[in-house]
């Protein structure tokens, strides 16, 4: 156990972990508000979710207002 670990962090470097975390949040949030048609709840509730469109109804007004394609 004589190995010395040195952590070199440049002062201007941007954490890769932070970028990955934020990128995932970006993609998930965008899909949820902009494009979900019942997909996410269908993971839990199955086909019925596509009929109910809970998230779609909840995010529906913002979807139109923010310029995402809808009905």
């Amino acid at each position: 156990m004589s190995e010395t670990r040195q952590i070199n962090v440049s002062k201007t470097g941007v954490s890769k972990l932070a970028i990955v975390v934020l990128a995932i949040i970006f993609a998930a949030g965008l899909f949820l508000v902009g494009f979900d048609q019942g997909h996410i709840f269908s993971l839990v509730y199955g086909e019925q979710a596509f009929e109910d469109l809970y998230i779609h109804e909840l995010t529906h007004d913002m979807r139109h207002a923010a310029g995402f394609p809808c009905h």
Partner: peptide
């Protein structure tokens, strides 16, 4: 009410 919630979700995402 979804307009507000969706605003927060979309805002966090963007």
């Amino acid at each position: 009410s979804g307009q507000m919630l969706a605003g927060v979700i979309l805002g966090t995402s963007i």
